[in-house]
Amino acid sequence: MSGAEAFCRERPFKVNWPVRCAWFAAILYALYAANYLDVSWARFVVGLGNGATFLAEMVPPDFSRWQLLIDNLIETVEIAIIASAFGVLFSLPIGLLAARNLLPSWVTWPARTFIALCRSFHPVIFAILFVKAVGFGPLAGILTLVFASIGFIGKLFAEAIEEISLKPVEALRASGAPFISVIIYAVLPQVLNRFIGFASYQFDANLRNSTMVGIVGAGGIGGTMFAAFQRFDYDFLAAILLSIIGLVMLSEFISIRIKRVFQ
């Protein structure tokens, strides 16, 4: 253990100046940005006071309008289910088309661009545009989440396919199997587990996001929540937030169970 003694006596590790400078720069930047944004300690403290009243008003949560709450939750779940179903359905072929190791670039390029477009805007922005296009209500929310799902699963699925071993693909091509059969036998078994993982993750994400798209009028519990905010109805708000968290936890529990079936 002589190494440990040396460790205590001298400094076997060199001081890493670039890293220190980076930390210093980060602190400087934080100060500058705080100043730019007018973020100050005084405002923070005032806010904390508000926060205390805010929290106090949230307790106890008001579940008296449970009928409305349940209706909204059901709509939220419906939006999430439909959006996930179609999102997964579309992202399977699109992800496949975007895999550069299986298909020529004139196929992958449009698919990759489409996925990139779906990803680059936040779902809320899609929601706003769809609300303008198809009016208020769950349809806008469904369309939003379908696109969000394609952006997310499509990309991950394409990456998963690009990481597979091409050896079985070569073997099945050599045996004269049709392209789709090659995909079914040589590609899907290698990526199916991951795909199911992505899909169930996306279902959770859709559930969380479908609580959000309502804020801009795209259906689900978000609209009611936003209204509660604007009316300073904080005890009802607390009830809504608690039910959302409960819903998300329930869906995570279910998706763990479902993943086990496909193991």
Binding site: V46, N50, F54, R208, I215, I244
Partner: peptide
Amino acid sequence: SVNTLVWALLFVAVFG
């Protein structure tokens, strides 16, 4: 498990 937009709503209520 709370969405960004919901966090934003909460903190707007708290900090203005």
